[in-house]
């Protein structure tokens, strides 16, 4: 009997220990979870989208390129608040049209537009810039979160012709057959030309009358350009100081009947990826 009574007590103690252990675990887990998801932090939720580079229309190549992005800040409070932000990188031209802060009252999804400007010497690649977002609520300690703004810069290039008027190639008018091009690119580039939508017997000779120091015309002699053949004309390094004046004439060998021959000159700027450039056919 004595033995039975001892066993019962021992079981009871074990149960109590288990209960204590389980209660402690539950309490610890609860406390731990509570501290991990601090309610103060949930007052501020930040998300962002990718930066979009503004379209680069031909003919309007400025010294700076603009990329736009947005931060979405969710403020969860009933009180008055002030949201401030600070761009931590001084190397980049990053601003917001809203300035540096915005204030409000109550819960709100605040959009912060961000403008990231860079010049033509910025090579293609992924750029990162940290930003601090601070939420101040009256009577409470401010909350700060850091976010990394990411901008992916692709190869960018703009060809700016002196005008988009029709190029008139005749034997007697030297000015109407000349074309001036400006090229901006953020990496080493090559300029190609193709004669399209033309009479099949058309043959042109392209001569470079002028090129800026930073620009290299690929041929020392006039270049023969035949329809639907892509010819490399010039190349250069990254930057915006590239200008070419090209003179176009009918190739003397072209057996063309008297008349008018409309066509298009398609100029393309491509990045040079370390490949050897194919020189245009010298005439």
């Amino acid at each position: 009997m004595k033995t039975k009574g001892r066993k019962g007590k021992a079981r009871t103690r074990t149960r109590i220990r288990y209960h204590l252990l389980a209660s402690t675990l539950v309490t610890l887990l609860f406390m731990g979870g509570y501290s991990l998801a601090a309610p103060r932090e949930t007052l501020l939720k930040i998300s962002s989208d990718h930066f979009r580079i503004a379209p680069l229309p031909s003919g309007i190549a400025g010294p700076l390129i603009t990329a736009r992005g947005e931060l979405y800040v969710e403020v969860v409070t009933d009180a008055r608040w002030r949201l401030r932000w600070e761009f931590l990188s001084e190397d980049y031209r990053i601003t917001s049209p809203l300035g540096q802060e915005v204030s409000g009252k109550g819960a709100r999804l605040q959009r912060i537009p961000i403008v990231w400007k860079f010049d033509w010497m910025t090579p293609p690649g992924l750029y990162e810039a940290p930003i601090n977002i601070m939420l101040e609520i009256a009577g409470e300690e401010s909350i700060t979160q850091r976010k990394l703004l990411k901008l992916r810069v692709p190869f960018l290039a703009v060809i700016t012709p002196q005008s988009f008027r029709r190029l008139r190639i005749t034997d007697d008018n030297h000015l109407d057959r000349q074309l001036s091009l400006e090229i901006h690119a953020n990496a080493p580039w090559v300029l190609q030309v193709e004669v399209t939508k033309s009479h099949e017997s058309l043959a042109l000779v392209c001569n470079c009358l002028y090129h800026s120091v930073a620009t290299q015309f690929l041929s020392s002699a006039p270049v023969l350009v035949l329809p639907n053949q892509i010819i490399g004309l010039a190349q250069g390094e990254a930057g915006g100081d590239h200008r070419l004046v090209l003179d176009w004439q009918k190739a003397p060998s072209a057996p063309l009947r008297a008349g008018d021959y409309p066509f298009y000159l398609r100029f393309s700027v491509l990045p040079v990826r370390g490949e050897l450039l194919q020189k245009g056919g010298e005439y």
């Binding site: 680069l56 031909s58 692709p154 190869f155 960018l156 290039a157 703009v158 060809i159 012709p161 988009f164 029709r166 190029l167 008139r168 190639i169 005749t170 034997d171 007697d172 074309l179 091009l181 690119a185 399209t196 058309l202 042109l204 176009w248 009918k250 063309l256 009947r257 008297a258 008349g259 008018d260 021959y261 409309p262 066509f263 298009y264 000159l265 398609r266 100029f267 393309s268 700027v269 491509l270 990045p271």
Partner: peptide, 17 residues
């Protein structure tokens, strides 16, 4: 494609010779 392209209209006039 990320290349820049410009299309220039042109006309070659071959005078009677």
């Amino acid at each position: 494609k990320v290349d820049a392209t410009v299309l220039i209209p042109a006309e070659l006039t071959v005078k009677p010779l």
